[in-house]
Design a binder for these strands. Structure first.
Lengths: 122, 122
DNA sequence: GAGTCTTGACAACGGCATTGATAGGTTTCT
DNA sequence: AGAAACCTATCAATGCCGTTGTCAAGACTC
């Protein structure tokens, strides 16, 4: 590790909204709503175009998992993210053994790594 | 502590559903729903009457706070409870400084103590 | 026996999540 | 330059959820 090439940096903003939306199987509108809700905070080009990093995408996948699979609403997602950030622990990891008893942790958003440090409300 | 009289044991089932409901300002129906959802698990008399302990009431107050004040749905409440139990930490405490900036932690359900160890799905 | 509890069902009400369409305007790419 | 995709903002439809409410038939408690 740590010799990832900079052009593969998971923090690097690369995906435009339509691409990010298709990756996570959601409507672009939905991603904008997540942003309005302060759940994600994608970078912007100098000309204001949203650019999502790999970590942003993973974070959205967490939101999708929590809402679609576990039935949590966006308020609950916010609480969980805030809690993870506040505790400095990757508590979200604990939410997989619990949901999918079929042990498929590979399909996990896997981005619990940085799930906490992303959103900022301006 | 620990010389609480047994007749004041917060685990002792004392409140019948109508009383518990009035204490937490909710409809008895709502308490039954919480139970169906596995969020609470009040004791029963030998003749099947629900009896809520002080801790049960506090737990319901947490549910109310999370849903009414923070907008979390019952699925989110379940996740939070499970997480607290799994981590063995009183993470819910962290949810007050965050919600009420007016610093009124006295009105808190205060029952974070035992919020984790209550529900069991038969 | 009156009142409260039980389960179960059905309904109404408001709210939320998601998707969708629209408008007018800017950016990007060919 | 022109097409395509982006931006913000708004309005709407759809479907599900949370809560309260009521009704029924039956069991329990005082």
């Amino acid at each position: 590790m740590t010799f990832r090439r900079p052009d593969r940096d998971p923090e690097r903003p690369v995906y435009v909204i339509s691409v990010a939306a298709s990756i996570v199987s959601a409507h672009p509108r939905t991603l904008r709503i997540y942003e309005e809700e302060g759940l994600i905070c994608p970078a912007r080009t100098p000309t204001n175009i949203r650019l999502y990093s790999e970590n942003d995408v993973r974070r959205v996948m967490w939101i999708r998992h929590l809402t679609q699979n576990l039935g949590v609403n966006l308020a609950g997602v916010r609480i969980l993210f805030e809690l993870e950030e506040r505790l400095g622990t990757r508590i979200l990891e604990h939410l997989y053994a619990e949901a999918a008893t079929d042990g498929d942790a590979s399909g996990a958003p896997a981005g619990a790594q940085t799930a906490a440090a992303a959103a900022a409300k301006p």
